[in-house]
């Protein structure tokens, strides 16, 4: 690890330290990547002293300060009551120790766990060193994308929390030298294209201030299911965040977001569209997610994710169907 400076931000305005600095939340990903030689910031600006407030908003939604610890969000009574899918997603991630450290802002900004990305000494990676090549393609692709990848990068975003936030139509409030703005979570992450090093639409001098969630109609009928290689404490092969409301036995609204399949939480919009207004029979759900998967492009070694997404989505939604909304 290179020598590095450290200081704590006193305010949001204080939190624009310059290009060579990085904002430090819990450090659970950044410190590890610095040790691995993937990240080389000149300075670390600790932003955990900024807002960690979790508060109900007037519209029946919730605003979560960017410095709120993952564990605090998952344990918060309003989150558990109104957004159980989010609580479950956070609790599915990492370990209790890491959730106690990690912040909401840091969770959104974490980098891919692609092994070739992490191997700064020995592997090529376009995300780490643009133009150098991608050793993941043709290599171990179990944790890699089936949606939205490019010939330059096939990495996935590892967050569980973000998958639930995507399903809940969360918005990311950010601040920069020019003022504040709001980015819908659906527009927060970029697909890799030919610039996999650019991962979000956050400006280089912008900071996440909070995450806002609108009122959710899915509190009683939502779920987050994570499928992984170990029973606990492993990243998702595939995860499904879903919520559904029915009216007269017909789907009124439905949200499906998939984790572990793309460089961003993958909102299955086509599946949602297909399901809306239909009776959610197993066949209908299957047809809907199959329609979504028509655009999937698996890699040699992760073809199984197609079937896994299909089955898991059907199982999650058919269970929710039976849950009173």
């Amino acid at each position: 690890m290179n020598p590095v400076q450290y200081r704590r931000a006193e305010s949001v305005e204080d939190a624009f330290p310059g290009a060579q600095w990085r904002l430090l939340g819990g450090g659970t990903n950044l410190v590890d990547l610095m040790r691995k030689g993937v990240e080389h910031p000149a300075g670390l600006l600790d932003v955990t002293g900024l807002s960690e407030e979790i508060a109900a908003s007037d519209d029946g939604g919730l605003v979560i300060g960017a410095a709120a610890r993952n564990s605090a969000v998952a344990a918060h009574p309003l989150v558990r009551r109104r957004y159980p899918m989010l609580a479950r997603a956070i609790l599915a991630g990492a370990s209790a120790q890491i959730r106690n450290m990690a912040t909401v802002g840091g969770n959104l900004m974490q980098r891919t766990r692609c092994a070739y990305f992490a191997d700064a000494a020995g592997s090529r990676c376009n995300k780490r060193a643009p133009g150098s090549g991608c050793d993941a393609i043709g290599g171990f692709t179990r944790y890699h994308a089936i949606f939205g990848a490019s010939p330059e990068c096939v990495a996935t975003h590892p967050s569980d929390m973000a998958v639930a936030l995507a399903a809940l139509d969360a918005r990311v409030n950010v601040a920069g030298p020019g003022g504040t703005r709001t980015i819908p979570l659906a527009e927060f992450y970029r697909l890799p294209g030919d610039r996999p090093d650019l991962e979000t639409t956050l400006g280089a001098d912008e900071i996440i201030v909070s995450v806002a969630m609108p009122a959710s109609p899915f509190a009683g009928a939502s779920a987050y299911r994570k499928v992984r290689d170990r029973a606990s404490y492993a990243f998702a092969l595939v995860s499904v965040a879903a919520g559904v409301t029915l009216r007269d036995g017909v789907v009124d609204d439905v949200r499906i977001a998939l984790g572990g399949v793309a460089a961003r939480p993958w909102r299955a919009l086509r599946a949602e569209e297909t399901l809306r207004g239909t009776r959610p029979t197993d066949e209908a759900i299957d047809a809907a997610i199959t329609a979504e998967l028509a655009s999937a492009e698996p890699l040699p070694g992760n073809e199984f994710k197609i079937e896994l997404v299909r089955r898991t989505t059907v199982a999650v939604l058919s269970e929710l169907r039976g849950t009173p909304a």
Partner: peptide
């Protein structure tokens, strides 16, 4: 392809955790 071990980590080499 390269002769390199690609999961040199307790996060990526999965020994059983308590829940397993």
């Amino acid at each position: 392809r390269t002769g390199r071990i690609m999961n040199p980590s307790l996060a990526d080499y999965h020994i059983p955790a308590h829940l397993d």
